[in-house]
Simulated assay, not measured.
Amino acid sequence: MPPYDGELPTWRVGSWPSWEEIHKRVVHVTESVWLSDFIVNDAAKWATRRGQPGIVWVEFPELGERIAKAAGVPFYRGGKEASATIMRETGKRSIVASLRANGTGKNLTMFSRMLFVNPPADGATWEQAIGRIHRQGQADDECEVELYQHTDELIDAFRKARDFARFIE
């Protein structure tokens, strides 16, 4: 263990030398566990409102896939193919999109509605995502942004994003 010079306490851990040799090769395996289909069904219902297409933004690919399947609409994750295909959308149907992969750099003015299933806790992320539809070229007079706020975590995420945006301003 390298020497440490600082105010924080330190301790020698016997297992560290062995772990240090391999820790970068360890692949963490995650598994989605569904407790409820409420969000999937509600977001799918939002996406299939007649005459009101929009973008359903998600953070987690597994959730995006489930919502898209339930709504019968495409899910755009990351990658060159998805990036090119999302730009060919006409705005006549809703889509589900990865916020991380599609929340910046794309002109999505064919839509004027969006739903954040996992509201980001960062003001800059909100600004970028909303800027996909609220920009020059938008044909509608108004853009609509909705988000889920039914848990403390979702409320806190939005509060943090708003506080961060105020700080930036």
Results as ranks from 00 to 15, higher is better:
41 N>Y: 00
141 D>N: 13
149 Q>I: 11
52 Q>T: 09
126 W>K: 07
74 P>F: 15
141 D>L: 07
55 I>K: 00
29 V>G: 01
82 A>F: 09
45 K>M: 06
33 V>D: 02
118 N>C: 04
103 G>R: 02
63 L>Y: 00
110 M>K: 13
30 T>F: 10
98 S>K: 03
124 A>W: 09
102 N>W: 05
15 S>V: 12
45 K>N: 07
162 R>G: 02
105 G>Y: 03
129 A>N: 08
127 E>S: 13
39 I>A: 05
28 H>E: 14
39 I>S: 01
89 E>V: 09
3 P>D: 07
140 D>N: 11
112 S>Q: 08
48 T>Y: 07
70 A>R: 15
164 F>G: 13
91 G>Y: 08
27 V>K: 14
93 R>D: 11
164 F>C: 06
4 Y>C: 04
110 M>S: 10
5 D>V: 14
163 D>F: 04
50 R>N: 06
122 D>Q: 08
80 K>H: 14
137 G>H: 10
9 P>C: 00
134 H>E: 11
163 D>R: 08
95 I>A: 01
45 K>C: 06
149 Q>W: 02
69 K>A: 15
5 D>S: 12
26 V>Q: 11
164 F>W: 08
23 H>T: 12
17 P>G: 07
27 V>I: 14
64 G>C: 02
142 E>N: 08
35 L>P: 00
132 R>P: 11
68 A>S: 04
16 W>G: 01
48 T>S: 12
9 P>H: 00
98 S>H: 05
38 F>C: 02
55 I>P: 00
86 I>W: 01
111 F>P: 01
70 A>W: 05
98 S>P: 00
126 W>Q: 07
54 G>H: 04
16 W>C: 03
8 L>Q: 10
54 G>I: 07
151 T>V: 02
10 T>H: 08
70 A>F: 06
68 A>C: 04
159 R>L: 05
26 V>N: 04
3 P>T: 11
122 D>L: 04
95 I>D: 01
165 A>V: 05
10 T>K: 05
129 A>V: 15
3 P>G: 04
68 A>D: 03
38 F>W: 12
106 K>Y: 09
132 R>Q: 08
65 E>T: 09
91 G>A: 10
108 L>P: 07
14 G>A: 09
119 P>H: 00
54 G>M: 08
148 Y>V: 05
77 R>E: 13
113 R>I: 03
66 R>D: 05
29 V>I: 15
24 K>G: 14
